[in-house]
């Protein structure tokens, strides 16, 4: 209890003497968290949109001839060699004819007298519902086109392909911003704390002369890093929440954004972002104080 009261006293004193540097660090951590979590929010929403698109998505491979039943397993294996899929359905000419008839509905008369043999054999492939599948759709399609007996591969629209490229790009941006912002946060926090410690070097020396233990010197600095991480991350997430509300209100109504059914980051993700920020800022302060414990 006594220790906590001294640590709090030291923190108050540090805040009084170095509040400008601390505000700057807090702001940096807040911005880092905001930028990263914003991209992450966009990414997760895109992921959901992709998942919805994937529900509708299937690749149809038209074949020269029907795949014999005893070769189907091998054919399926060739497909899954490239990528895991949800389902593979072999469609016979008869099945295709029946479907076409059903699709035409009242106009199915046009098929009267026709033989199903004018329709090709095909295989319908349902990719797994994730962004990776969507991003690789073109590649997958090319691969399927190269399978023995494949005449043509058909899937969705061209924009699905573009969407796939876009989410791939977004994923790279999320990873890069994440990495860069982690480095920035650690650097800024350790730099600020180092500057604060530089300005307190005389005090630390005197504390050493008075017999201050490592924990007495280290404690407030580490807690300072912890608090900067906590407050910075909380402010960042709060700012993101306001930004999210604004986007939702601003783009509500009929339009492009309605396709996406925006949703905020789940609690578990926010918890991970807060924990990461705390961990990074605390590590930053621990790195900075090491030198001063050798006095």
């Amino acid at each position: 209890m006594q220790y906590i009261s001294f640590v709090m006293g030291q923190l108050a004193r540090n805040a009084k003497h170095g509040w400008t540097a601390q505000i700057m660090t807090l702001f940096t951590v807040m911005l880092s968290v905001l930028i990263f979590s914003f991209f992450f929010l966009v990414y997760t929403n895109m992921q959901k949109a992709a998942s919805r698109l994937c529900n509708e998505l299937r690749l149809v491979v038209y074949l020269e001839s029907e795949v014999p039943t005893n070769f189907r397993t091998e054919f399926q294996k060739k497909i899954t060699n490239f990528e895991e899929v949800e389902d593979i359905v072999f469609v016979s000419r008869e099945d295709a004819f029946a479907r076409l008839k059903k699709q035409l509905g009242n106009d199915s008369d046009v098929l009267a007298g026709l033989d199903p043999s004018f329709l090709p054999y095909s295989v319908e492939i349902y990719p797994t519902r994730n962004l990776k599948s969507l991003a690789r759709i073109k590649e997958f399609s090319d691969y399927l086109g190269g399978l023995p007996g494949a005449i043509k591969v058909q899937y969705g629209q061209e924009w699905i392909e573009r969407f796939g490229y876009f989410v791939s790009l977004l994923r790279i941006i999320v990873v890069l911003t994440g990495a860069l912002l982690i480095l920035t946060s650690v650097f800024m926090v350790s730099h600020t704390i180092r500057l604060t410690l530089e300005s307190r070097q005389e005090e630390l020396e005197i504390l050493r002369f008075l017999g201050a233990t490592d924990s007495y010197i280290r404690g407030p600095v580490i807690i300072e890093g912890f608090l900067l991480g906590l407050l910075g991350a909380l402010s960042g997430v709060t700012a993101l929440s306001f930004l999210y509300q604004w986007i939702k209100i601003r783009f509500s109504g009929p339009g492009f954004m309605n396709l996406f059914e925006l949703s905020f980051l789940p609690g578990s993700t926010i918890f991970i972002i807060l924990s990461m920020s705390l961990l990074l800022c605390t590590s930053g302060s621990m790195i900075s104080i090491r030198k001063y414990l050798k006095l």
């Binding site: 005389e202 005197i206 008075l210 017999g211 233990t213 490592d214």
Partner: peptide, 18 residues
């Protein structure tokens, strides 16, 4: 060393005050 320093009071010639 830290605990030993706590047992010694030193009045420095250059004061070493904050």
């Amino acid at each position: 060393l830290q605990l030993m320093r706590q047992q010694i009071g030193v009045a420095y010639q250059d004061f070493k005050l904050l």
